[in-house]
């Protein structure tokens, strides 16, 4: 057995990794991500070269990050080697660098191979596009679809005049866009946002349903696959508990005109419901002359987040659990009490 073989065997012994993050698999893992970025851009209509360039910009240097992963592996090996012996450590470092150089060379070869493979794919795609240009042109006409839903109370009865706030988020050509919509439920508790759902591309829909006397409810949908359709949704609102907050200063004197805005609530089963700025404005309240403000949008047992703004002051975030017992929060200059 040659010295080279001995070095390789020792190296394999020290760098053997049960979690499958050896040289080849690290490269394979990174290349999977890189290919997906290229495919994503090609699917958006970019040329292969533009897609490749975009992927390089978005991912960063493949070689750099592979080296970092390898360096981490080598570091672990280094520590293990110290425990064995100083001689083994020297052996390991030399072998590690050797393996590192081999891995780098393999990565270069793989990248070249991948570029050739994707170049052939591009030529094939170009040919297909030419043949079917007319039909593709017809198919890419965007046809948005409606977003519909039903809002019920806890007795399955429709809730009319409920405010439905929707934020649509899209990423055309990698750029983030968002747009807000609002609707009100009809006498049968139904709402309709016409032509809201994009025909293609990734999108996310955030929705908050707000009605005084009922705990507010939010919903999130992220389209992750091209085949995925947004089905009509049904939301059930539960009657809210009556919560009264009293805001006082250090001398226990009530403060009026304090703005109190609910931001989120976490129910006892762990569901988190949030409302954005527009929704907050709908359920926000001001304290009266006795420093009191009442809410009908939380459930008993909820852990809630509220924002509090003293007259002319900044916003403070508070969190507390809605319970039957009296609850007091002490702040640096203000006390907020729940009766």
């Amino acid at each position: 057995m040659s010295w080279s073989n001995i070095w390789q065997n020792v190296l394999r012994t020290f760098t053997r990794d049960d979690s499958a993050s050896s040289s080849g698999t690290v490269r394979e893992e990174l290349m999977y991500h890189f290919r997906e970025l290229v495919n994503e851009e090609v699917a958006r209509g970019a040329t292969f070269d533009a897609a490749w360039e975009h992927a390089e910009k978005q991912f960063g240097s493949l070689r750099h990050y592979e080296n970092e992963c390898h360096a981490m592996q080598l570091q672990r090996t280094f520590v293990w080697g110290l425990a064995v012996s100083a001689a083994a450590l020297l052996f390991l470092v030399c072998a590690g660098w050797s393996r590192f150089e081999i891995g780098r060379q393999r990565l270069t070869d793989d990248l070249r191979s991948l570029k050739d493979e994707l170049g052939a794919l591009r030529r094939e795609q170009d040919s297909l596009v030419t043949k079917t240009a007319q039909s593709v042109s017809e198919q890419i006409q965007p046809v948005e679809s409606d977003f519909v839903g039903l809002v019920l109370d806890d007795e399955q009865q429709p809730l009319r005049d409920t405010t439905v706030l929707v934020t649509l988020k899209t990423w055309p050509y990698g750029q983030y866009h968002s747009k807000d919509f609002a609707a009100t439920t009809d006498s049968e508790g139904r709402f309709l946002l016409s032509k809201l759902v994009p025909a293609s591309g990734q999108y996310a829909i955030e929705l908050a349903v707000v009605k005084d006397g009922f705990a507010f409810h939010s919903y999130f949908h992220l389209k992750q696959t091209p085949e995925e359709k947004l089905e009509p949704i049904t939301l059930r609102l539960e009657p809210a508990s009556h919560v009264t907050l009293v805001v006082r200063d250090d001398n226990d004197v009530p403060i009026r005109d304090v703005k109190v805005v609910p931001r989120a609530r976490e129910s006892q089963n762990g569901d988190i419901h949030r409302i954005d700025l527009l929704g907050s404005e709908l359920v926000g309240r001001m304290t009266d002359a006795e420093g009191r403000v009442q809410f009908g949008c939380f459930l008993t047992g909820d852990t809630v987040e509220i924002s509090v703004q003293l007259p002319g002051g900044d916003w403070d975030l508070h969190s507390f659990e809605v319970s039957q017992d009296d609850f007091v929060i002490d702040l640096a200059s203000t006390a907020v009490a729940v009766n």
Binding site: E29, Y32, H33, Y65, K169, Q202
Partner: peptide, 29 residues
């Protein structure tokens, strides 16, 4: 997988963070 993690961070942060996606892998390892 790493690509899905990168997509989630992109979507959940509303495209806020400008980081090279390759930097996920040293962190994951």
């Amino acid at each position: 997988h790493g690509y899905a993690i990168a997509r989630h961070l992109h979507v959940a942060s509303e495209s806020f963070f400008q980081v090279e996606e390759g930097s996920l892998y040293p962190a994951l390892h």
